[in-house]
Computed example of a mutant assay.
Amino acid sequence: MWSAIVVLSLVGCAVAGPPVTRSRKDIEGFRAYLERSRTDDGLRLESRMLVSPKASAWENSGKFQGDILLNDEQADLLMQEYAGVGGRNAYIWPNTKWPSNTIVYDFNNEFTTAQINAIYAAMREITARTCIRFRRRTASDRNYVLVTGRSDGCYANVGYWASMGVHTLNLARAIPGQGCFTHTIIIHEWIHVIGFMHMHSTHNRDTYVRLLWQNMIPGMEYAFERYGTNVVHNMGLPYEYASNMHYDRFGFSRNGQPTMLPIFNDNNQMGQLQFVTGWDWLRVNRHYNCPGAWSTPINAEELSQGTYLHEYKGDEDAALEDQPQGVVVEDLPQEVLVADMPQDLEAEKVSVVEN
């Protein structure tokens, strides 16, 4: 468990050290927010959706920024950066790309066949659009993503952490197409696992959106922190309202009124859940240095206006042909039948996942 002593020492250093823009109250408030996001409050996703019905399921999942599950190291580094301790590069997260562009995964045995098929459908789209591949966990794999179905929401760890062992991607069980089992939400959580934070966190956010602090749930203002390029990198692409990784207008609203509004015309696409944009895929491909990703032309006018693409502008068939052939991956099933599901898979205990 994250040490309260470490956090309190950060507060003391920030107060005693060089001047920072954060007050002691701010730092302690951020600490409390991080602790809440890492503690199971016992609420089901359905309960949170009743309180904030206009927000998406992943925004209502009770974790950091809604659906990011922080490990101890990430929480410590975020706290250092917020408190102004340890220099400007306090929480660069190096080497968090999955080795060989391959995500090792396994399932908890709490999903129906239809739910497994929905998860595989999202994974197949990722492999079709990027050079990311998936491989089922074997007995020798220590580091892998365990896909679980706890009822508290949709959330995931960000990136690959060799020190973690078991990474988590949780999808509260629902009928495919609803709640956490919306196709684009499943992809959203996998993109966290791939290594991405939310679009609204990026350094140039304030140029494109206006925050309405008065409408936010008290104590949740920290969910709208923005970070420097040492954490959130746009990969040379514009800010994108329609990104699959962007908050909608009503995230963490206390009164049903918007908490975030676009400054430019977003064509009513901010926070949409209908599709994953071409730039979403291109950001992933650039992050993993996929073939051809950095040679895809970006219009200079688009860079200045923050517009977006619905479709990938590159030659997708050619891009797929250029994928590396030396990576060992499995062929993801098109459909899983009950008879094909392993019979000896035991459900992981919640305590194991959290540890």
Rank of each mutant, 00 (worst) to 15 (best):
W2P: 01
A4Y: 04
I5M: 04
V7C: 04
V11P: 08
C13D: 12
G17E: 11
V20R: 11
R22I: 03
K25D: 15
D26S: 05
L34E: 00
R36A: 01
D41G: 08
R44T: 13
E46I: 04
E46W: 02
S47T: 13
R48W: 01
M49V: 06
M49Y: 03
L50W: 07
A57I: 07
S61C: 13
Q65H: 10
I68P: 02
L69R: 10
D72N: 05
D72W: 00
D72R: 04
E73D: 11
D76N: 06
D76C: 06
L77T: 09
L78Q: 10
Q80S: 11
E81R: 08
G87F: 08
N89Q: 13
N89C: 09
Y91S: 08
T96H: 12
K97W: 12
S100M: 14
V104F: 07
V104A: 10
D106W: 05
D106R: 04
E110H: 12
F111Y: 12
Y120M: 00
Y120T: 00
A121T: 04
M123L: 13
R124C: 00
R124V: 06
A128Q: 10
T130N: 09
C131P: 04
R136N: 12
R137G: 00
A139Q: 07
V145I: 13
V147Q: 01
T148S: 14
R150S: 09
G153R: 09
C154N: 10
N157Q: 11
S163G: 14
M164F: 10
G165T: 10
G165D: 02
T168C: 14
L169Q: 02
L171E: 03
A172W: 10
I175A: 15
G177C: 01
F181C: 07
T182C: 12
I185W: 00
I186A: 06
H188P: 05
H188V: 03
I191V: 15
V193M: 05
I194M: 02
I194G: 06
F196Q: 05
H198Y: 13
M199I: 03
H200K: 03
S201F: 12
T202G: 06
T202A: 11
T202S: 06
N204W: 12
N204Y: 14
R205M: 08
R205N: 06
R205I: 09
Y208K: 09
V209I: 01
M216E: 07
N230M: 08
N230I: 04
V231P: 01
V232A: 05
M235E: 15
P238I: 01
Y241I: 00
H246R: 15
D248W: 03
R249D: 00
N255W: 00
G256I: 07
P258G: 05
N265K: 07
N267K: 13
N267F: 14
N268Q: 03
Q269G: 03
M270N: 02
M270K: 04
G271S: 07
F275T: 12
G278V: 03
W281P: 03
W281K: 02
N285T: 00
N289Y: 15
P291Y: 05
T296R: 14
T296Q: 15
I298Y: 05
L303R: 04
Q305P: 10
G306Q: 11
E311N: 12
E316P: 03
A318N: 09
A319L: 12
L320S: 14
E321Q: 14
V328Q: 15
E330M: 08
E330D: 14
E330C: 10
V336E: 09
D340I: 02
M341T: 05
M341W: 11
M341C: 09
Q343L: 15
L345H: 15
E348L: 14
S351C: 13
V352A: 14
